[in-house]
C-alpha cells in the first residue's frame, strides 16, 4: 500500500486515506531505500501535515520554501554552519512553530531529490515527537547523552517519503547543556554528510522560554522566527531578537526571517489561488 512520493504530494488527503486504511503505519511500507543509510529500519513516524489540498496554504509554504532555497548557497570554506540547517523558533510558546515546521517539510517534499530531516529540539514541549507518535522512542537527547548511540538509531522514517524525524528523546534535566556538546554538531554533520541534499529543520522551543534555543541557533544557518498574528507582543519579539543577536551571532535579514502565522486570507500573498 505504499504510495509514491509524487502521489503523496499531489494527492494530499488521498494518501492519508490510503495509509490510514491499513490501520497500521508500520505497514506503510518498508523503509525507503533512499533513507536506509540514515535509519535503522525500526519504527516509522507518522507525519501529520497541514491540509495541502488548500492551494493557498500550499502556495504560502511554497513562498517560504523559495525564500529559504534562494539562500541555500553551497557551504563556503571556513563557514561554520551548513546552509541547509534551519532553526524555527518563536518568542513565546503556542505560536505555531511545529505547524510551520511540518508545513515547510511537506513543501520541501515536493522538491525532487531533496530530503527533509525534522529534529524535535523543543525539550519543554516535544510536540513534533508527540504528533509523530515517537514520544517514547530514542531521540535527540538520548543521542547526545549516550555516546554508544549512532545517528541512525535516532532518525526515523515517516509515512511520507523523503521526510525523516529525530524525536526529542527522553527528557533530561541537563538538556540545555547536552545541546551545546559536540555531539550535536556531529549529528548535523552526519545528516548532511549522508545526503548532500538534506535539509534539516530544527523545531526548537521558544527563545524566551528555553535557553537551549540560543545554543541551537549557533548551528543554524537560517532562523525562522514565527510570529502569531494578534498574539505575539512586540516587546516579546524585540526581546527575542535581541537575545539572538547578543548570544547567537548577528541578526540580519540574510540569516533571520519572520513568518507571520495565523493570518487571514486578505493578508496572504496568494490571493487568487484556485481551491
Amino acid at each position: 500500500m505504499a504510495t509514491s512520493k509524487l502521489e503523496s504530494a499531489s494527492a494530499g488527503t488521498e494518501v492519508l486515506v490510503t495509509v490510514a486504511s491499513n490501520d497500521s503505519v508500520v505497514d506503510v511500507g518498508a523503509p525507503l531505500t533512499a533513507l536506509q543509510g540514515l535509519t535503522s529500519g525500526h519504527s516509522v513516524g507518522k507525519v501529520a501535515t497541514p491540509h495541502f489540498d488548500e492551494s493557498r496554504t500550499r502556495e504560502e509554504f511554497r513562498a517560504l520554501k523559495r525564500h529559504l532555497m534562494t539562500r541555500f548557497a553551497p557551504k563556503a570554506e571556513g563557514e561554520a554552519n551548513e546552509p541547509r540547517t534551519i532553526l524555527l523558533t518563536s518568542a513565546s510558546p503556542q505560536e505555531g512553530k511545529t505547524t510551520v515546521t511540518l508545513g515547510l517539510a511537506m513543501s520541501f517534499m515536493f522538491e525532487r531529490d531533496w530530503r527533509v530531516v525534522l529534529i524535535d529540539a523543543d525539550m519543554r514541549s516535544p510536540e513534533l515527537s508527540r504528533r509523530s507518535n515517537l514520544s517514547e522512542e530514542l531521540g535527540l537527547l538520548d543521542y547526545l547523552d549516550d555516546d554508544t548511540l549512532e545517528v541512525k538509531d535516532v532518525v526515523y522514517p515517516t509515512n511520507v517519503d523523503g521526510v525523516l524525524i529525530v524525536p526529542a528523546g527522553k527528557p533530561r534535566i541537563d538538556a540545555p547543556e547536552l545541546i551545546t556538546t559536540d555531539r550535536m554538531t556531529q549529528l548535523l554533520k552526519a545528516i548532511h554528510a549522508e545526503n548532500q541534499r538534506s535539509i534539516v529543520l530544527i523545531d526548537s522551543g521558544s527563545i524566551l522560554a528555553c535557553s537551549e534555543t540560543v545554543s541551537l541557533a549557533h548551528h543554524a544557518a537560517h532562523i525562522l522566527f514565527v510570529v502569531s498574528k494578534g498574539q505575539t507582543k512586540k516587546s516579546d519579539i524585540n526581546e527575542g531578537i535581541k537575545l539572538l543577536h547578543r548570544q547567537a551571532g548577528g541578526v540580519d535579514e540574510s540569516r533571520v526571517a519572520l513568518v507571520l502565522n495565523r493570518t487571514d486570507h486578505s493578508q496572504s500573498p496568494v490571493r487568487y489561488a484556485p481551491r
Partner: peptide, 30 residues
C-alpha cells in the same frame, strides 16, 4: 494598547527583518 502585530508590513517596519511568508489560518486544518 495590546501591542500586538497584525500585518507583515508592520512587522518589517518594526524589526527591519524580512517577513519570509505568511501562513493563513485554515478552518480545514483539523
Amino acid at each position: 494598547v495590546s501591542g500586538v502585530l497584525v500585518s507583515p508590513r508592520e512587522l518589517e517596519e518594526e524589526f527591519d527583518l524580512p517577513v519570509a511568508a505568511t501562513v493563513s489560518w485554515e478552518p480545514a486544518w483539523q
